[in-house]
Amino acid sequence: HVLVMTATPIPRTLAMSIYGDLDISIIDELPPGRKEIKTVWRSDAHRLGVFKFIREEIEKGRQIYIVYPLINESEALDYKDLMDGYDSISRSFPAPEFQVSIVHGQMNAAAKAYEMDRFVNGKTQIMVATTVIEVGVNVPNASVMIIESAERFGLSQLHQLRGRVGRGAEQSFCILMSGNKLSQEGKTRLETMVASSDGFEIAEVDLKLRGPGDLMGTQQSGVLQLKIADIVKDADLLKKAREIAVTTLKSDPYLENSSNKPILLAYRALVKHKNIWNYIS
């Protein structure tokens, strides 16, 4: 009765599929005429080379997204910010030869719509933005997604941002920019993005890094304290257990066979409690 569609499965969605709430169907083909997005990871030392590449793509008539994690500079966080980035991009790609749009969450709706329309209609070649462009933006002519301080973003968000390009027939690119000091988890996320474009493969790594979250609530990630099983290490065992459960219920839906009596007794004991999810193991 319910169909859930997603390009980027969050850890909780993947966990729910393991526990049988969702059956998985994977569409692993690109729409006709589209090419797989080439993803690379570059440090700040390669910035001049990246700018040269941007210029080459614009000369081909393409458009560019540059996404920042912060709007303004932060004393607490050592990440690239949009306002400083916008100034730098405007100096490197000066008017009137180049036109640059800017969009972020603190702008009013009319200003955002104006800037988005300019980019959609090809009046600007570069869109400097925060993650407000993560969903709902479709510009087939945009061929390059540059994500600044990419180590700051989660895997599902990186995958979602990458999906803003590759919507036309031309080859598209995603460039993950990072500083030199990265945590091991940050390195794993960026290496995963370079290695894979498969949403479920990326979600499996995300599940290992962040945990499955709350299966019955809204928390999308975090530790799930099961009594016995580990949802990552025991994934194959959990899938096998589910298959056996499905087979058992098909052959003996009311658990009337003597061999299934222990299961029936355990089930009756569990359903006396209001929330039996606490007893999953």
Score class of each variant (00 low, 15 high):
2 V>W: 08
2 V>C: 08
2 V>R: 11
5 M>H: 00
5 M>W: 00
5 M>E: 00
8 T>H: 07
20 G>C: 11
21 D>G: 13
21 D>I: 14
27 I>T: 00
29 E>W: 02
34 R>L: 08
41 W>E: 06
42 R>G: 01
45 A>Y: 09
49 G>W: 04
53 F>I: 01
58 I>D: 06
59 E>R: 15
61 G>E: 04
67 V>A: 03
73 E>W: 01
73 E>C: 01
74 S>E: 01
74 S>R: 04
76 A>Y: 00
76 A>W: 00
83 M>I: 12
95 A>K: 14
99 Q>I: 00
102 I>D: 01
104 H>L: 05
117 D>G: 10
129 A>K: 03
130 T>K: 08
133 I>H: 04
138 N>W: 05
145 M>Q: 05
145 M>P: 07
148 E>C: 08
148 E>A: 10
151 E>H: 11
154 G>R: 04
156 S>A: 15
158 L>C: 14
170 E>K: 15
175 I>Q: 07
176 L>N: 09
177 M>D: 05
177 M>L: 15
179 G>N: 12
182 L>A: 09
183 S>G: 14
187 K>C: 07
188 T>V: 12
189 R>F: 07
193 M>N: 01
199 G>H: 00
200 F>T: 02
201 E>D: 03
204 E>L: 08
209 L>A: 08
214 D>K: 07
224 L>S: 11
225 Q>A: 12
234 D>C: 10
241 A>P: 14
249 L>D: 14
250 K>A: 15
256 E>D: 15
258 S>C: 04
263 I>N: 06
263 I>V: 14
265 L>V: 11
267 Y>D: 00
